[in-house]
Simulated scan of single mutants.
Amino acid sequence: MKTTGRLYHAHSNTFIYCELSLSDECVVFSNDEGLHERLPKPRLVLGMAIKGQAQDITLPDGRRFLCDDKTFRLNQHSTSSFIERSEQHKGLVIGAIFFCPLLLYWLFFIAIPHVAASSAGHLPQSVIETIGQQSMTLIEKAALEPTQLDEQKVANAERIWLELINQLQLNEQKYRLGFYQSEFFGANAFALPHGQIVVTDDLILKLADYDDAFRAVLLHEIGHVEHRHSVKIAAQTAGTTVALAIVFGDLQGIVDLALGVGTAIMQQQFSQGMERQADDYALSNLLKLGYKPEHFATALEIISQGTDDDSQSWSKYLSTHPHVKSRIEKARTYKHP
């Protein structure tokens, strides 16, 4: 077996033309200029055989041989040859076309969320605190302004908040309440992984005459923290970012991981199951503390006034997962399990 090609010097683009021939278990490189080099085949490093490309053959000293015949293969019965034959197998190609999307779906919609949910319960508090603080810094810069509420409304909201924290016997150092003006969020409240609860001025103003409804909203947000929903979203975002970087070869995306996690929390849209868990937490604790579950229904109704339920509102309370009307109905008919 013989073929001609180019023999490149090690770490260089310069080359000489030569002939490659097989003799027993050795490979001979020769040309008319006096080159005659005999090497055992096992000492050569053979590149993967890819259809339409010349096989790369590397010599022990780093020189590389590329043959002119792109169909020439020094390892006809190797794994590379199997890969090349597989690329030409129509059945395998069609199977890959259907299998790859299914694999990606399983990875991003089943495996990563499952791992994220499992890992969220094992993250140290110091890590959760860091995620929460970084996310809060991003959200403050992007969408929040100092509160414009008067002292009386802030004092009343803080009174309700502290009553809840004491009644639920929660850690005052972990759970903190913040007031902000935000055109971006509108009448809204959201919870960060480390226990920071943010309420907007518009929400306070809408619920100014409904203390019990405001209390129900706070309980809903505390429920998100207690069930670590934001932590799960952060873990899922981090896992997805790493997986995408590996699958598509963009490892630089991992550098932006912290920013991506913060953005995900800022734009958090909790799943149907997460919303139901937070709703149940609020409703059960309203009953436990001597309040009526209907107060949560009142809060949903007031917040949703003048808002198209099908619009892309940032308010989680108007999320269609589940539909706000079903959440109101559930709150009005709720009985402790």
Rank of each mutant, 00 (worst) to 15 (best):
R63C: 05
D69A: 05
K70H: 12
K70E: 13
F72H: 05
L74N: 01
N75Y: 08
Q76D: 11
S78Q: 00
T79Y: 14
S81E: 13
S81H: 04
S86V: 06
E87H: 12
Q88L: 12
K90V: 15
L92N: 08
V93W: 15
I94F: 15
A96D: 00
I97Y: 13
I97S: 12
F98E: 08
F98S: 08
Y105V: 15
I110K: 08
I110T: 10
I112K: 09
P113I: 04
P113H: 06
H114K: 10
V115Q: 10
A117P: 03
S119G: 03
A120K: 09
A120Q: 09
G121R: 09
L123S: 07
P124S: 04
V127K: 06
I128V: 15
E129F: 14
T130D: 10
T130S: 13
S135V: 04
S135N: 09
I139G: 04
K141H: 13
A142C: 05
A142V: 06
E145C: 02
P146R: 03
Q148M: 01
Q152Y: 08
K153A: 13
R159C: 00
W161H: 01
W161S: 00
E163K: 02
L164Q: 07
I165L: 15
Q167K: 06
Q167G: 00
Q167W: 01
L168K: 11
E172Y: 00
E172W: 00
E172D: 01
Y175M: 12
Y175D: 09
R176K: 15
L177M: 02
G178T: 09
Y180L: 12
Q181P: 01
S182T: 06
S182P: 05
G186K: 00
G186W: 04
G195R: 03
Q196M: 14
I197M: 14
V198A: 09
V199E: 05
D201A: 05
L203E: 05
I204N: 11
K206N: 03
L207H: 09
L207W: 11
